[in-house]
Design a protein around this nucleic acid. Structure first.
Lengths: 242, 242
DNA sequence: ATAGGCTTCAAACGATCGTTTGAGCGAATC
DNA sequence: GATTCGCTCAAACGATCGTTTGAAGCCTAT
């Protein structure tokens, strides 16, 4: 059944150093962010020599990219595979938005379900990476996501033929934003929302709640026809009395 | 008409140092994040002495909080004032979701519209602060937002009496997440979505698109009744063939 | 046994960080 | 006119950062 490889290295005996660094870095980057995490804290947590990071990965930046790509690449491949399968099953018919969202969410959900592979920590780290200002992170994520997003965008365009392309771009942007923010889980607003910490840490029930929410937004009426747009204009013209 | 104060200090002669530090810090924190921004780069941009930051603000952390509170506090006060006004106008009737969203969005929109007050930079910085792992930032934002969110939550609860309180907490969390992520504007996924950079920098049309999207999500059917939930279960039971 | 490859190790490098110090300045106060 | 107070300044403090170095170890193939 499962290939049952505990370590992610090439297969022979585990020269665990590289993987131990990746595991430790994943947790610490998640907890403190990229800039605030020192190589010394990583190598200490991994119980390896300080120089091992530069030897195996070249630099701190390349280590960070390796941490991300280790899980992000398979996850995005899985997303594309799911979308392919759904489209094959539907022959020439356009997919429903529900199925497309499923192809987008389920691979993340599977990661969150498998704690052996550090899914929870990784999703949180990924969410943080989206908001990180460092240019090398932005460039890296952009490269990693470009193809996948493009495929999903055309799928959504077929599912929502009445929606202008530009409006679809916006809504996809909102969806990816809400998804990454939710996964980041900085628990700033969670306490405010009076949610039990246990729940906000459970990525599964989190994604299950998020999917219907975003789906409704995706199918929302156009802004020009929405009541809230007129309300905004009204409120802006009347700057409030005091 | 306008009170026309260029500087935000007490009013007499502008001992511009403090304000120049705040302005420079706002831009640099927005661009590079908290950890990656050095006090030396801030004081150089503000053309003040290095020691001025610690003299006027005490520490780098307190400077960051001062940058945030300078604009965040008035904005949240404005949100509460708008909500109060709407509720007064509606007497005992519950407000519509549209009006509540307007009270939440318009003050941010007004900030974005007034470049003299650095609205655009600040909103972007605020979005970044939400995702920052530093505990002092999380604590600060939590304190700043607690009362405001609580007020809006009860308003939404009255507008959506059929929605369970826990589900409302989730959706409010999603709304604040999408809002802050969108305002952060890390342009990682923007290029992917093929949006012109000019548009993604324009916070006004951005918020106008976001409001209908989130409103639809707020009114979405419960997850248990949503079609996508059953689709997720189906996809998880069948881990995909290769 | 010997040579050569990866890998690990302790130690140091130069740079930059946030913060502190104490002298110096001008204007207001007595 | 002497003194105090708020503010600015150059300079330095100690700490920590990412990275590099060169020797030492280990395993494989000759």
């Amino acid at each position: 059944m499962s290939s049952s490889v505990v370590s992610l290295n090439d297969g022979r005996g585990p020269p665990a150093t590289k993987d131990r660094i990746l595991d430790a870095a994943e947790g610490l980057f998640m907890e403190h962010g990229f800039e605030a995490t020192s190589l010394r804290s990583i190598t200490a947590a991994a119980a390896v020599n300080l120089a091992a990071v530069n030897y195996h990965f070249g630099s701190k930046e390349e280590l960070f990219q390796a941490v991300l790509t280790r899980r992000l690449d398979p996850m995005n491949q899985r997303r594309l595979a799911l979308l392919d399968r759904f489209e094959r099953e539907a022959s020439a018919e356009p997919l429903s938005c529900e199925r497309i969202i499923v192809a987008l969410f389920v691979p993340a959900l599977e990661l969150a379900r498998d704690p052996e592979r550090g899914g929870k920590d990784f999703l949180r780290l990924l969410g943080r990476a989206y908001a990180d200002p460092a240019p090398f992170i932005r460039q890296f994520l952009s490269d990693q996501y470009a193809q996948m997003i493009a495929r999903f965008k055309t799928a959504f365009a077929r599912a929502l033929p009445h929606l202008p392309k530009k409006e679809l771009s916006w809504r996809l942007h909102f969806i990816m934003g809400a998804l990454s923010y939710t996964l980041a889980g900085t628990d700033v607003l969670k306490l405010i929302a009076e949610l039990a910490p246990r729940e906000t840490t459970n990525d599964e029930i989190l994604l299950r709640r998020l999917a219907p929410f975003l789906l409704a937004g995706l199918k929302a009426p156009l802004p020009d026809l929405s009541e809230v747009t007129r309300e905004i204009d009204g409120a802006l013209d009347t700057p409030a009395r005091r």
